[in-house]
Design a protein around this nucleic acid. Structure first.
Length: 133
RNA sequence: CGUACUCACUGUUCUAUCGCUUGCUUACCUUGUGUAAGUAAGAGGAAAGUCCGGGCAACAUAGAGCACCACACCACCUAACUGGUGGGAUUCAUGGUAACAUGGAGCCAGCAAGUGCCACAGAAAAUAACCGCCUAGCUAUAUUGUAUAGAAAGGUAAGGGUGAAAAUGUAGGGUAAGAGCCUACGGUCGGUGGUGGUAACAUCAUCGGUGGGUAAACCUUGUGGGUUGAAAGUCCAAAUAUAUCAGUGUGCCCAAGCAAUUGGGAUAAGAGCUGCUCGUUCGAUGCUGAGGGGUAGGGCGUUCGAGGCUUGAGGCGACUCAAGUCCUAGAUAAAUGAUAGAAACCUUUUUGAUUAUCAAGAAGGUACAGAACCCGGCUUAUAGGUGAGUGCGCUUU
RNA sequence: GGUCGGAUGGCCGAGCGGCUAGGCAUUGGUCUGCAAAACCAAGUACACCGGUUCGAGUCCGGUUCCGACCU
């Protein structure tokens, strides 16, 4: 692998945890559907000095079993972890902080390959918006 | 050997790459529970349902009673229980002529304390006379003592297309007809005594009764229960606002003075409550500092415990005792993973060998399910595998 | 995580163990030139599995689903 070492970790600090920020996301944040995800984001001040905080959510209504929900969240987290670096770089350069939440809105399970391609797509989408502004 | 059921146990493994949480160690400087490196550990038999019980915590509480809720054969186990073990009676199934044997089931105290309810059908559903049966007298008719018919009165539970259930069964006596009215043998309930058993209970004798069912109907009796649940509770505490206190400035009131100003005051002037008096409450505001309660957020509670494992002893058993040994998840929008490959096991299928098994290949599958304060049970879900028991079938001896 | 409540036709909703009320909707008829309204009639239900009882929508136990509250 060439160039600077790609950051592929996803630690506790990068999880979006604050109940208040999450609530404000749903009231004031912007959203976009890229199936099977709904992306909700907002620029705001975060408790740590990080460019981005991320959270994932799966509805109990669509997946009543806790095992299934956990599995989908883990796969989403994994897919984000591997592909997140371009977005982080852009936000860091623009000197902002971004809170993002992704809700899994499909009612059935989705193959891992599709989850990955759509995640890359949505990360590109987010990067483009914040680069132009 | 195959198959079905029941019970008990088990609940796939390894490698590579990248990653997560917690503990410990080391290094670094921006002293943050920071970053980096190393190292150790990291979901279940049900973690589930929240159906019981206990620990723990806060609040309440002199004691007792009522109300409310739960439980209900006996003994034992347990910290405790709507749990478990063993036993008893009842009932169902199978085998048997029967005694009985084997297996299963249940909230198995009391309806002989009181009250209520028992649809439809039926004479009647609980202090039974509708039909029937019997009785002396009365009335009518015929052949005047008798017979038939009729109305009224009385006796009678032997018989009556019902119903889930019909007034203790059979035989004999008895009677106008009948009746536990009486007798014998039974059924069933209660008391007393004997025998066996810790007890439930069994069994024998004797006395008294025998007008139904229903308490998962109200209820009665006995026993137990204070209420609420970790979002309990407790500690620290940013920003913003601020009770209160101190300093200081402005304002207010009083006195002195022509005035600037000086000194003193908050019990004065004034305002609210009231129709008025009395009474009572308030008594301005800027800045600075202290400061309590307390929000966001964080810490503790939180994982060493009625703990696990091994061996020995006691007990029919649930379980208990002793010795040794081990420390074994701690997250909080919630960690324990993702991807790829291989092995193991199962199912289907193809080919070959040989005759119901083996070898190789291909395809598919590997359940139910995710800790959230912690334990003991119960209930429900569960692919495949292992062991034991029982029934059935086949084969061999 | 904890504590409670509910499930009755297509929809709402009553039900003291004994043939499951009532309203709206649907279908057919009467009325009308045709409709509406009105009147008459019809069809369609106790979430599921066990137990108690002669007999459960109702009583008891379990399962599934839906909802409320505690922050």
């Amino acid at each position: 692998m060439l160039g600077p070492k790609k950051d592929v970790s996803f630690k506790k600090k990068e999880h979006l945890k604050s109940r208040k920020i999450i609530a404000s996301l749903f009231t004031e944040g912007k959203s976009k559907v890229i199936f099977p995800y709904r992306i909700i984001w907002r620029t705001c001040e975060l408790p740590h000095s990080l460019p981005v905080q991320f959270a994932f959510s799966v509805s109990t209504r669509n997946f009543p079993l806790a095992v299934k929900r956990n599995q989908i969240k883990r796969q989403m987290r994994e897919v984000y972890r591997v592909n997140k670096s371009p977005l982080q770089d852009i936000i860091q350069r623009s000197d902002k902080q971004l809170a993002v939440m992704i809700v899994f809105i499909s009612k059935k399970e989705v193959p891992f390959e599709l989850m990955r391609s759509k995640m890359i797509h949505s990360i590109r989408y987010l990067s483009k918006i914040h680069e132009s502004s």
